[in-house]
Nucleic acid binder design. Structure first.
Length: 216
DNA sequence: TTCCAGGCAATAC
DNA sequence: GTATTGCATGGA
């Protein structure tokens, strides 16, 4: 079993995914084979917002919320932290559970300086810090670390688990989040660019597979 | 109409 | 420790 080989096959088949998209000139843009984004703490914050908003929701809905914030001139940490919760709820209504998310996003925005400081810390300390937030579980913590702060922290989601199952990378045992995570991290170079692309490719592969199943 | 979409937290057992 | 429930939109 060679994980890198599978990675290269997927890259050949699907190409660079350019995840995570950011608002550029009023629309969502992807950055294939360019891992320099996010390029500022403001852009990092935008990624964090997306990580909250896409929970149990499609990216389509989550991104429309981010564009709403942009169009309202509120797509920055201070605006999010300071605006009335009712206003934020209105702007992110297309994300499911918007009341709960508005509250959690504002709590996060209020502590943004602390988040930035912790991001300079050791990875495990940063992760523990993130996990203490309401609304940040393991998957969201890893998404924030990888896609907002360029830390090599592999994300485990339903697609990753499906990928492991399909490829028979595991066959038995009690599989919790950390087991999957260690499997990838122990078998790959600790490179955020690789983790970034690999996870994006797993998602596109598994999404295409389930779409194919539906249409047959 | 139903079901699901890249979860998390609180509670129950 | 694992299982269940609340959260409460939009699109197929």
């Amino acid at each position: 079993m060679n994980l890198i080989k599978k990675y290269e096959e997927m890259l050949d088949k699907f190409g660079y995914q350019g995840w995570w998209p950011l608002v550029q000139n009023g629309k969502m843009e992807y950055f294939p084979n360019d891992y320099s984004y996010p390029r500022s703490f403001d852009e990092s914050f935008e990624v964090c917002l997306g990580a909250f908003l896409t929970q149990n929701n499609t990216w389509r809905n989550a991104s429309s919320c981010i564009l709403n914030l942009y169009n309202a001139g509120k797509l920055d940490v201070n605006s999010v932290a300071e605006m009335k919760s009712e206003e934020l709820e209105k702007l992110i209504r297309h994300s499911r559970y918007f009341k709960q998310k508005a509250k959690r996003v504002q709590e996060f925005a209020l502590k943004w300086n602390e988040v930035k400081n912790y991001s300079k810390n050791d990875q495990s300390i940063f992760r523990e810090f993130l996990l203490k937030f309401n609304g940040i579980g393991k998957e969201t913590a890893d998404s924030i670390m990888l896609y907002a702060f360029k830390k090599p922290s592999f994300i485990i989601d339903v697609y990753t688990k499906r990928f492991c199952f399909d490829k028979s990378l595991f066959n038995t045992g009690k599989l919790n989040y950390e087991v999957y995570k260690e499997f990838f991290e122990n078998n790959l170079k600790k490179d955020y660019k690789l983790y970034n692309e690999f996870h994006a490719l797993i998602v596109i592969l598994e999404q295409r597979k389930s779409q194919a199943k539906l249409s047959t």
